[in-house]
Write a protein that binds this DNA or RNA. Structure first.
Lengths: 324, 324
DNA sequence: GTGAAAGCGCTAACAT
DNA sequence: ATGTTAGCGCTTTCAC
């Protein structure tokens, strides 16, 4: 169907290898010969079959990215930054969403490895990554982002400062005189949720009260029920700390009219336009993606130093949802 | 480095072809032989090299997706739907963002085709797609989404009803008594912007006034300047129609305090939580992605009927930013 | 039921 | 400066 190097060689009246030289810009070809080859290429509409090339060369110039959900703004931003970084180095990106399903994560990794991607960037859904051991041993580097790999796997990891961010949020509320601060976070099985809980707990110290903590998927009904329960306490919360962007939005919806001082983890579009503007602890999704990509590219380049564990800073953005 | 079928064959004491049969679940292998092969596979940690397989079979089970920007919620949603659809059919997705740059779009398409993707889904940035002709002729189907291909290229296209949506928006404002309705949209070079302008213009009829139209990138400064200019008119606008999600948000920021009845094209997260809630014409990004993916899969499956041009409906979501 | 040989489109190593 | 040969890891064809 499509013309091959052989077709070009025949058309130009040269040997296969000469075409290869021209296509790859290798030296040692007479300019007039090269011109004839280029002409034939043009004529036939030849384009190199990268699949064949890669089979021969042993590298695919492809990186596999497993994220939680491309549809989520946080991961979409991360994704974009990864793409931006790797494409500049001549790599393409195979992407897939795990949808928080460990099985799916594993299938994607498997499919990517079967295609011999040169490296993997994974936002893990599961907590067991021993299945990756053979791939790592076979020389396919992997970088974990946003959450660390399960036990027994020693790979590069880029996280953000979850506990520190929670401390920032809670500290801000404490400074505004709050002593009853509720935490609404994701399921404890999710690493970031647990880390944020830890930061919250440690910062509250004596003030910690487990009745003011709820951890579960961010459904509107769930959050409503939890808030109702907390508000019915003798000593109800006077402020809220929401554990991620999704939770912040869901909580704002659940409050519907009522209002309570609030700090959310994760910045989000329009946080500044709500009234009052929502004070948040902002992560840097693009930064996570960029750093992870650069680390991976270094590994692909041959850096086999000890695995790195990076933690990116977060920052508090005060917008008024605490002071009003 | 990694074990090959040959290694497995040697380890199991069978011929290469027998391993191939087992790996591919082909019939005609003795169960005891098959068991020995499977054992060797396990032992060596063999996994099939899909690249080699594809070279031989002539198809890659990969689809290339060129979008504008994965970081944008609209395209992220579309992207996710495409992924969902194709993965169910055993395909993986190569993705890239054009960033509204025709050159980059072309490079991505080229890179995807060099890897012999089985099909392309493109949200075009440019307006000339004749470069795709050879690929289409070579049998690589392409589906255009959100915007049509440039002239001279006859490919499947999935759009949403841009003009109809604009008519819905403007009609809604007219019914609320507005006669001076401004349109703030993207650059005229962008298909959707021009289509929405057309719907706006046709619905306004005699009421159309070009001084109430501005089309340019959605920068805060630009929108501010345009609004100031319009408000300074003898007959200033009493309502706004914003041409896409980004514009709606930018306009809300530019208004900063001031308030004007407004309808936006594109739904967006938190549109309901702003006060007042923002009335929008909602597209269905996931629908666009799903329909495009299904159409492409049909083409890959061999359907070579005449090219299809689908237009998905939009709907008005009334939230209060007009009635207040 | 099993295997040997050819070849997918390319690059690497070695002639000439 | 150009060409020949082998082989990447697999599937296809055909023979036993």
């Amino acid at each position: 169907m499509r013309p091959t190097m052989n077709d070009v060689a025949r058309a130009a009246g040269v040997a296969l290898k000469t075409v290869s030289r021209v296509v790859n810009g290798e030296p040692g070809v007479n300019e007039s010969t090269a011109a004839r080859v280029r002409e034939a290429i043009q004529e036939l509409g030849y384009s190199r079959n990268e699949g064949a090339r890669m089979l021969r060369r042993g590298r695919t110039a492809t990186i596999g990215l497993v994220i939680e959900d491309v549809g989520d703004p946080f991961y979409a931003g991360l994704s974009r930054a990864v793409e931006e970084s790797v494409i500049r180095h001549g790599y393409l990106l195979l992407t897939g969403s795990s949808g928080e399903d460990p099985g799916r994560e594993r299938e994607l990794v498997r499919a990517f490895c079967d295609r011999r991607v040169d490296g993997l960037i994974v936002i893990p859904a599961g907590s067991d990554h021993t299945y990756l051991r053979p791939e790592l041993d076979a020389g396919t580097p992997a970088v974990f982002v946003d959450r660390p790999p399960g036990p027994g796997i020693d790979a590069d990891t880029v996280l953000c400062d979850n506990a520190g961010g929670a401390a920032l949020a809670v500290g801000h509320l404490l400074r505004h005189g709050h002593r009853r601060i509720a935490f609404l976070g994701d399921s404890p099985s999710i690493f970031t949720a647990t880390e944020r809980l830890r930061g919250y707990r440690e910062t509250l110290g004596e003030l910690f009260d487990e009745r003011l903590v709820t951890m579960r998927p961010a459904t509107l009904e769930g959050v409503r029920a939890d808030l109702d329960r907390m508000f019915a306490l003798d000593d109800p919360p006077t402020a809220l700390f929401t554990g991620n962007g999704r939770f912040t939005m869901t909580t704002l919806r659940a409050l519907a009219g009522r209002w309570l001082p609030l700090v959310g983890f994760d910045d989000f579009e329009l946080a500044d336009l709500l009234s009052p503007g929502v004070t948040v602890v902002a992560q840097d999704p693009a930064g996570l993606g960029r750093v992870a990509a650069e680390l991976l590219l270094r590994r692909i380049g041959g850096d086999d130093g000890p695995s790195e564990h990076l933690r990116l800073p977060v920052r508090l953005i005060v917008r008024g949802s605490v002071e009003r």
